[in-house]
Design a protein around this nucleic acid. Structure first.
Length: 423
RNA sequence: GGAGAGGUGGCAGAGUGGUCGAAUGCGCCGGAUUCGAAAUCCGGUAUAGCGCUUGCGCUAUCGGGGGUUCGAAUCCCCCCCUCUCCGCCA
């Protein structure tokens, strides 16, 4: 959520920055609403003040045993006007807050201009894609040849966009999770947290999934939602909290499944594990002082990169252009891993600084000594998407004989196993 | 799931229709006292919004929402949460 004060002070400026990401702000509509809000609010509060004043006088008069009927008559005359004003004010404020909740974040000044993913800027490439002596298979072929990746059975049990992994593959998936969590907690200073996978609407609103993106979520009959990312429960830990400044930064990491309806992605990435309704992710979240959130974004991105480096997977870092930014983000770096089976880089992590956008929705603040509470800045990044990491390992570590070499860093997590062999 | 009790400021805890945004205690901040400290005394100590703007005034907020009333922390309805007992269960 943007600061409404900013919209009041510099509406044109905010509109310009939103235009950079392809969003048109209805400035005339906002100004009209604001003007009405102002006049109705002043009128409502004046009436309320008058009512309170008279009501107190009635109390005093009654206390003294005096006749209060004249006062009662006067306050009674306020009734209809007051009720109408209060209702109108509530309606306007609801409209205003609805508008406010639907406006995306402003891009940070360092974000490259551009309309869509084609305008994203590649910052660096790390690692060299392996040269194969044969035409490398994609993960589906590799996994199915090993008899460890089973889509038809998953469809039978559930529906499309789910997967069943067996044996060494399921084990490697688990090993990846352990490896990632251990790296972030031991080497990067994160605290591991275990969180609910079902959250309420307030939490979804806090991080920005609601009200605009309800279609992307799985909603339960009791009004709860399946989390689409650990970002939601982890970030909402600080909702409605005031954190002592000396406790910042707070760095948390969680492993959770993620559930996404993938509405609107029909026909996209239908083959394999790239786009599933359910996938696991290790997610890093940081709560930081506003002065150092952009520094923190660089660090957090480095923490995600460290996993790829340790796994020796070739990847590149891309700065999203303004038009490709997510709703809540002020700045985002995507990490894209090389997939030999597709001969392309695919997103495996997304690291974002939301600045105060989520904090304002959540009322997540910090206090420095006696100063007034101030909004914190929130960040998060995948470290990494586990399913896609498994895909990357399968494709990059495949061998001509159909086996897959276990990356060295994973071996301690797999009982020293060096490779996954066909039966 | 059944029965009961409860949700009030940073914390504890009063308040069952009227100068209650809320007693009192603790904590915290400032001052007095002291060589200094403790103790003691005095004063201050929520959040958000709005309007004039060094400050002041007003409005809202006592789990959330709705209602009754001139007036609600207090009465009514719905929901959420916590605790105790029973049932069930990993």
């Amino acid at each position: 959520m943007l600061d409404i004060q900013l919209l009041r002070k510099d509406l044109a400026g905010a509109a310009d920055r939103l235009a950079a990401r392809g969003v048109t702000l209805d400035t005339a509509g906002f100004e009209r609403l604001e003007a009405e809000r102002k006049s109705i609010q002043v009128r409502t509060q004046d009436l309320q003040a008058r009512r309170n004043q008279l009501s107190k006088q009635i109390g005093v008069a009654r206390g003294k045993g005096e006749d209060a009927s004249a006062l009662m008559a006067e306050v009674g005359g306020l009734g209809d006007d007051l009720k109408a004003a209060e209702e109108r004010l509530a309606a306007i404020q609801e409209e205003l807050s609805g508008l406010l909740l639907s406006i995306p974040n402003l891009p940070h000044e360092s974000v490259p201009a551009g309309q869509d993913e084609r305008d994203n800027v590649e910052l660096r490439r790390i690692g060299v894609p392996r040269v194969f002596a044969y035409s490398p298979l994609d993960h589906v072929a590799i996994g199915e040849n090993l008899d460890l990746l089973d889509f038809p059975t998953a469809v039978k049990i559930s529906t499309s966009r789910f997967v069943l992994m067996r044996g060494d593959l399921a084990r490697m998936h688990r090993a990846l999770v352990q490896f990632m969590l251990d790296t972030h907690t031991r080497e990067h200073g994160y605290e591991e947290v275990y969180v609910p996978y079902l959250v309420n609407a307030d939490s979804m609103r806090g991080t920005g999934q609601l009200p605009k993106f309800e279609d992307d979520l799985f909603k339960l009959s009791n009004g709860m939602y399946l989390i689409p990312t650990a970002e939601v429960p982890v970030t909402n830990i600080v909702r409605d909290e005031i954190i002592p400044a000396e406790n910042l930064p707070i760095k948390l990491v969680a492993h959770t499944p993620c559930f996404r309806s993938e509405a609107g992605s029909y026909g996209k990435d239908t083959r394999g594990m790239i786009r599933q309704h359910q996938f696991d992710k290790v997610e890093m979240v940081q709560f930081v002082h506003p002065d150092r959130s952009h520094e923190a974004l660089e660090e957090l991105t480095g923490h995600a990169e460290a996993i790829l480096k340790k796994l020796d997977l070739p990847y590149r870092v891309v700065a999203l252009c303004a038009g490709d930014l997510g709703f809540s983000s002020a700045k985002t770096y995507d990490l894209e891993v090389w997939l030999p089976g597709q001969q392309t880089y695919r997103e495996i992590s997304s690291c974002s600084n939301f600045e105060a956008f989520q904090a304002r929705r959540m009322q997540a603040r910090f206090r420095d000594g006696k100063a007034k509470p101030e909004l914190i800045h929130t960040l998060n990044g995948s470290g990494l998407a586990v399913g896609r990491t498994l895909v990357a390992v399968l494709e990059n570590y495949q061998n001509a004989d159909g086996s897959v070499t276990v990356p060295e860093v994973l071996r301690p997590y797999m009982g020293g196993q060096v490779s996954v062999l066909p039966e």
